[in-house]
Amino acid sequence: MDLNTVTEVISPAGPGAWRPGDAWLGGGTALFGEPRPDVRRLLDLTAAGWPAITFHGDIEHGGGDIEIAATCTVAELNERLGKHAIVRQCCHAFLASFKIWNVATVGGNLCAALPAGPMISLSVALGGTLLLIGPDGTERRVPAAEFVTGEGTTVLRDGELLRSIHLPAAALTARTAYRRGSLHRHGRSAALLIGRVDAEGIALTVTASTRRPYVLRFPPGSEDLVAAIPAGEYVDDVHGRPVWRQHLTRHYAAQILAELS
Rank of each mutant, 00 (worst) to 15 (best):
G152I: 06
E34C: 03
A169P: 06
P15I: 06
G240M: 07
G152W: 06
M119A: 03
G221C: 13
P118I: 14
V39I: 11
T54L: 07
G107P: 05
L25C: 08
Q246N: 08
A85E: 15
L95R: 13
S97Q: 15
C91Q: 15
P20M: 07
G33C: 04
G240A: 11
L131S: 05
H184A: 07
Y178W: 08
P37E: 08
I100F: 02
H247V: 15
T7E: 06
D38F: 00
L260T: 13
L110F: 03
G28Y: 01
T210I: 09
A227E: 15
T129S: 15
G107C: 10
A116Q: 04
A191N: 03
D158T: 01
C72Q: 05
C72E: 03
S222W: 05
G134Q: 09
L183R: 04
E79I: 05
Y214M: 07
R196H: 06
V106N: 02
W24Y: 02
H92W: 14
L192H: 05
T153V: 14
G201M: 12
P115V: 15
L45R: 03
H92M: 15
T173F: 08
W24G: 00
T54C: 10
T138N: 09
R188D: 09
R188A: 11
P135E: 15
R80W: 13
S11F: 03
G150L: 07
Y214G: 09
P143V: 06
A30C: 09
L122W: 07
E160R: 02
T138V: 11
S261N: 12
A30R: 02
E160H: 04
G14M: 05
H56A: 11
A113R: 04
V142E: 11
A174T: 10
H184R: 09
A17N: 15
F32R: 00
A52P: 01
R36K: 07
Y234L: 10
K83S: 14
V9G: 06
R80I: 15
R175T: 08
P115F: 10
E67I: 04
W50N: 03
V9T: 13
L193S: 05
D136W: 01
P51Q: 09
T71R: 04
R140W: 00
D44L: 01
A144G: 10
T176D: 12
K99H: 11
L161P: 02
I202L: 12
L167V: 07
L130S: 04
L204C: 07
G152Q: 10
T129R: 05
L216V: 11
G108S: 08
T176Q: 13
P143T: 12
A253G: 15
C111F: 00
A177F: 03
C72R: 02
R185I: 06
L132G: 01
H186Q: 08
L25F: 01
A169T: 10
W244H: 12
G117Y: 00
L216N: 13
F55R: 13
T138Q: 08
E200W: 06
N109V: 07
A174H: 02
T29K: 00
L260K: 12
G240N: 04
R250V: 15
T176V: 12
